[in-house]
């Protein structure tokens, strides 16, 4: 039983491109072709507009909330080639930092796990990926991976900070410093895994899609050594890439071939459910059963079958 619990009239004047709930699910940010970013307070199923952020000069594609330990910080990226980091200070949202070093539309922004500090990855249509880090002095430092994806990068997603063997680490109270990694997807039909090794290096090139990769999402892997990446593409497929946490090889498995282009994949907070949406007018939820099968749990036709004595 899936139900609509509330409807939000965003007041945007043009198409909405992204909506993100903050860490606690108490605030909702949206962005639109009308060049604005809006923030709502969500309480008991009602929303009130808290801020209308103007600063981009083109459609805003994606937004991302930073971890609350850094305060209320939101990043946005736009067709205007800019990335803006917004910060709430004394109840007022201000432009905290503006990054304008891309040559084309910036399509995706994603904050690194908070353990690393305030670090943002940005993927652009110019094919490069920027990694912006807040410095101790209060400034920002940018590193750039040029030619990450030919024609363009559409998505970036960080690997969780808790690496393999986390279960052992947490029980002993000692945490090893994990290696920074993220995944990206682009117009070269590729999904790539990047690792920071002083500089950013390409660690794996995952070939499987036959058309532009539209989104890639690294699954949170809580206490498990296995890591999973989901990617989706204009080839209408969602592919799950798994790595056992020991070897360097990635296994691929097609989750499903959909009726239309798949634009977006994302994992639940705990990584146990994958949500998929695209051009087929559907949102579906997928989960791996104990049988190792990925099933669509939002399929309303499953679970039917009347029980005796209940007619």
């Amino acid at each position: 039983m899936v139900s609509v619990i509330s409807t939000v009239d965003t007041g945007h004047e043009d198409m909405i491109h992204d909506a993100q709930m903050d860490y606690y699910g108490c605030r909702l940010a949206t962005c639109s072709s009308d060049r604005s970013v809006r923030i709502y307070d969500v309480k008991n199923g009602t929303q009130t507009l808290a801020a209308d952020l103007r600063g981009h000069e083109g459609p805003v594609w994606q937004i991302a909330w930073a971890h609350p330990k850094f305060g209320n910080i939101l990043a946005s990226c736009s067709y205007d080639r800019k990335v803006i980091i917004w910060k709430e200070i004394n109840g007022q949202w201000i432009k905290f930092y503006e990054y304008a070093n891309h040559d084309s539309s910036v399509n995706s922004v994603c904050w690194a796990p908070h353990d690393y500090g305030l670090i943002l990855a940005c993927g652009s249509s110019d094919g490069s990926i920027s990694i912006l880090s807040a410095t101790a002095a209060g400034g920002w430092e940018a590193k750039k991976i040029n030619n990450a994806h030919t024609i363009g990068c559409n998505a970036v997603s960080w690997a969780p900070a808790i690496g393999p063997n986390a279960a052992f680490d947490s029980s002993s109270g000692v945490r090893s410093t994990p290696v920074k990694r993220f995944v990206s997807g682009g117009c070269d039909n590729l999904v790539k895994v990047w690792r920071e090794d002083k500089e950013w290096v390409e660690e794996a090139k995952l070939e499987g899609h036959s058309d532009w990769v539209r989104d890639a999402a690294w699954a949170p892997s809580i206490g498990l050594s296995r890591t999973v990446i989901a990617s989706c593409s204009q080839d209408r497929r969602v592919i799950l890439w798994t790595n056992d946490g020991v070897s360097s090889s990635w296994n691929q498995r097609v989750l499903h071939t959909f009726e239309d282009v798949v634009w977006h994949v994302s994992w639940s907070v705990t990584g146990n459910i994958l949500a998929v949406s695209g051009g087929d007018n559907k949102v579906s939820l997928w989960k791996e059963t104990v049988e190792g099968q990925w099933v669509c749990i939002s399929d309303v036709n499953r679970g039917k079958g009347s029980a005796p004595g209940q007619q």
Binding site: M21, G279, N281, V283
Partner: peptide
């Protein structure tokens, strides 16, 4: 026909 979505906390999704 194009649908976007994003996760809330727990079993919540914004579409």
């Amino acid at each position: 026909k194009n649908i976007g979505h994003s996760w809330g906390y727990g079993n919540n999704l914004v579409v």
